[in-house]
Simulated scan of single mutants.
Amino acid sequence: MSTANILVVYFSRHGSVAAMAKHIARGAQRVPGVDVNVRQLAEASFNHEQTSANLPDDGYPYCELDDIANCDGLAIGSPSYFGSMAAPVKLMLDQTSPIWMSGQLADKPACGFASASTMHGGHEMTIQSMMIPLLHHGMIWAGLPYKNKALIATATGGTPYGVTHFAPHTQYTGMSDDEIALCEAQGQRLAELAIRLKK
């Protein structure tokens, strides 16, 4: 029986954030006694509605409110759109008011991850935009400490706010070794903190 349920939820248009989610989940799975669930988010319309069917054509299932309510640790990922989270991520967070009112996420760890197509495309601001609603939920932010040497060495993604990926091409072309190491370190840290806090 698992002692902590980790949820990795993301929106990815071109594959970069999806790849990050996979490595974050892999890092979390290193921790004994952890159950990891990965969920994706559907596209959103200008009417702030989910535009896709209930089940995706491929990849992970879509995230539901119960997935968020029942997690012991949350990793949330988004591409950077003008220095902020993508609309599907905002739409998901806006629907968590019932969880906020019940306090179900309070005192649980959370982290964020992001990808941008330019080096100065708002990586850190995107993570901060996702951080704010989760702080309102009473979650404890789990950044990425500099004890991870790849954070100092990286010439692509990084940040102590949460792991990022530099994706200079529209289509996903892979992650650097540093980015992979940091994603896995982020997932492992989230899972370790979830177990400690749950105890």
Score class of each variant (00 low, 15 high):
Ala142Gln: 11
Asp58Ala: 14
Lys90His: 11
Glu124Ala: 15
Ala42Arg: 07
Pro79Lys: 02
Ala150Pro: 01
Leu41Thr: 10
Thr154Tyr: 08
Lys149Asn: 04
Arg13Asn: 13
Ser115Phe: 04
Ile127His: 10
Pro145Cys: 05
Gly77Arg: 14
Ala25Thr: 00
Met20Ile: 12
Ala110Glu: 03
Gly83Ala: 11
Val31Ile: 11
His48Ile: 12
Glu184Gly: 01
Ser117Arg: 07
Met92Ala: 00
Val36Phe: 10
Cys111Asp: 01
Lys149Phe: 15
Ser176Thr: 11
Leu197Tyr: 04
Gly121Arg: 00
Arg13Thr: 12
His14Gly: 01
Leu65Glu: 11
Lys199Arg: 11
Cys71Arg: 00
Met92Trp: 14
Ala114Thr: 09
Ile140Thr: 09
Ala25Cys: 03
Ala86Met: 02
Met20His: 04
Ala167Asp: 07
Ile195Gln: 10
Leu197Val: 08
Ser129Leu: 09
Met20Glu: 09
Thr126Lys: 00
Val9Lys: 02
Ala18Phe: 01
Leu190Asp: 02
Pro61Met: 08
His137Pro: 09
Leu134Gly: 01
Leu105Phe: 14
Asn70Ile: 09
Gln128Asn: 09
Lys22Gln: 13
Val34Gln: 08
Phe82Glu: 05
Asn54Ile: 15
Thr126Tyr: 08
Leu134Val: 04
Ile140Trp: 02
Gly112His: 02
Gly103Val: 07
Leu144Trp: 11
Leu65Asp: 07
Asp35Gln: 11
Glu64Ser: 14
Ala86Glu: 14
Ala18Cys: 10
Ala116Trp: 00
Ser176Ile: 09
Leu91Arg: 09
Asp178Gly: 01
Thr154Asn: 06
Ile6Pro: 12
Gln188Thr: 03
Ala75Glu: 03
Ser102His: 11
Ser2Ile: 10
Thr154His: 05
Gly174Ser: 10
Arg13His: 03
Met130Pro: 02
Thr118Ile: 01
Arg196Pro: 00
Gln186Ile: 03
Ser84Met: 12
Leu65Phe: 08
Thr118Tyr: 00
Ala28Pro: 07
Ser78Thr: 13
Val163Cys: 04
Asn54Asp: 15
Asp177Val: 07
Gly15Thr: 02
Val34Glu: 03
His120Gly: 13
Lys149Tyr: 15
Gly27Leu: 09
Tyr62Thr: 15
Lys199Thr: 13
Ala181Gln: 08
Tyr62Lys: 02
Lys147Arg: 07
Ala75Cys: 03
Ala106Trp: 14
Pro32Asn: 12
Asp107Asn: 11
Leu41Trp: 02
Leu91Glu: 04
Asn70Ser: 04
Leu151Met: 08
Gln40Cys: 15
Ala25Phe: 06
Gln95Val: 02
Ile68Tyr: 06
Ala75His: 15
Gly103Phe: 07
